[in-house]
Design a protein around this nucleic acid. Structure first.
Length: 237
DNA sequence: CATGGGATTGACT
DNA sequence: GTCAATCCCATGC
């Protein structure tokens, strides 16, 4: 049984701006119903919120059905149906049998395109993130009941920059799983909030971990941010 | 129905 | 630098 009492209810999400009444307004669906390259760039600096954890996006990649690196390239299948559905929805899939990767579906319904969220700057719920990330994969033991020492089995202290600096890492840190595939990014459970500051300095480079269409400069990252995943983009653009 | 290939990560040489 | 872990699903017999 996965009886899971609510995590500590302390509000870890960034405090809402008082006054307007409506607190955390997510980006509207129309934000995503645009060319995927525009959305990928505009998502830098926005905040992903899931439960009591949240992080600011510092790295994205764009994927589109017209280029072979995209899952949508093969056309409409059970796996890619989310990609061809309405925009403003989460596309979550399992990579290498281990990691969940989190994307934002873009472009009008019928077009297969999405932005892969590759790295975040942790903003809220860092303790919970650390707990999720440091938990060893269930290959070793079942569940040791020892609570006294944290990471007693050789687990070193994890730096904040290791929590969300990669697509698999951030999904684990935020607790995003395959069940969130197809859910709304406007209504939740995973939501994306607009950035509060002016447009940041963004670096464009080539995408990571692909073999096809590898030359396209469709990776975007916040210049100089330490949470960006490796390899770090060269200064271009 | 069997097989192969990942939009990755962490551990190790 | 190399390499295994491990699940979903597309493809082929």
């Amino acid at each position: 049984m996965k009886t899971r009492p609510a995590e500590s209810p302390s509000s870890a999400v960034p405090a809402p701006r008082t006054g307007a009444g409506t607190a955390l307004d997510a980006l509207p669906g129309s934000f995503y119903k645009r060319p995927v390259l525009e959305v990928a760039r505009d998502l830098i600096g926005c905040t992903v919120v899931h439960g009591e954890t949240a992080g600011a996006i510092v790295e994205t990649e764009a994927y589109h059905q017209q280029e072979p690196a995209s899952h949508a390239y093969i056309g409409l299948t059970p796996r890619t149906s989310t990609l061809f559905g309405p925009p403003g929805v989460a596309y979550v899939y399992r990579s290498y049998g281990i990691h969940a990767l989190f994307n934002a579906v873009c472009e009008p319904e019928g077009v297969g395109a999405a932005v892969l969220i590759r790295a975040l700057r942790p903003v809220a719920g860092l303790e919970l993130m650390r707990r999720r990330r440091s938990r060893r994969p269930p290959a070793d033991e079942a569940e040791a009941g020892s609570v006294g020492s944290e990471g007693g089995s050789g687990a070193r202290a994890m730096a904040d920059r290791e929590l969300c600096s990669g697509p698999g890492r951030l999904a684990q840190a935020l607790g995003i799983e395959l069940g969130e595939n197809g859910t709304s990014l406007v209504r939740g459970p995973v939501r994306v909030l607009p950035r509060e500051r002016r447009a940041p300095e963004i670096v464009a480079s080539t995408r990571i971990g692909i073999t096809k269409a590898a030359a396209l400069p469709w990776r975007f990252s916040l210049a100089g941010d330490e949470n960006v995943s490796r390899p770090w983009p060269s200064r271009s653009r």
